[in-house]
């Protein structure tokens, strides 16, 4: 824990100090820019894109992770010669996922 603490603490201190020093030097130097108006960032209004982006990758991840565990077991069975069982075990989740994937693509693709 102290090891990671040292890593993070040094990272924070050294990056902030380096950036601050360079910015200070620039501010005090002859090559500094003319004073400019500091624009405020615009407001972010749409949250739909963000929430959609979160749902899609994590649902795909959870689906594939759950499938992968059974697939890994099936791989061992394949080595033992239970080929039909393995093919069935792979075909069903692949078919289900492909069905959902292509339906989703049809619905949202521009």
């Amino acid at each position: 824990m102290a090891y990671i603490g040292g890593f993070v603490f040094t990272c924070l201190v050294s990056t902030i100090a380096t950036v601050w020093t360079i910015a200070y030097l620039q501010k005090e130097s002859r090559i500094r820019p003319l004073s400019r108006v500091r624009w405020q960032p615009p407001s972010i209004k749409s949250r739909a894109v963000i929430s959609f982006s979160i749902i899609l990758p994590f649902s795909a991840f959870s689906f594939l992770f759950l499938t992968f565990v059974s697939m890994k077991l099936a791989q061992n069975l394949n080595l033992e010669g239970h080929g039909v069982y393995v093919v069935t075990g792979l075909m069903i989740p692949t078919f289900c996922f492909s069905l959902g994937f292509f339906y989703f693509r049809k619905m949202v693709r521009p």
Binding site: C11, L12, I16, V19, S29
Partner: peptide, 26 residues
């Protein structure tokens, strides 16, 4: 690099954003 600008809040934000990337490399 010598032409970097910003206020104190920007520098702290930079430091905080840099930490996860360097942990990833670590």
């Amino acid at each position: 690099i010598l032409r970097i600008e910003g206020i104190w809040k920007d520098h702290v934000a930079f430091g905080l954003r840099a930490v996860p990337f360097f942990i990833a490399v670590g």
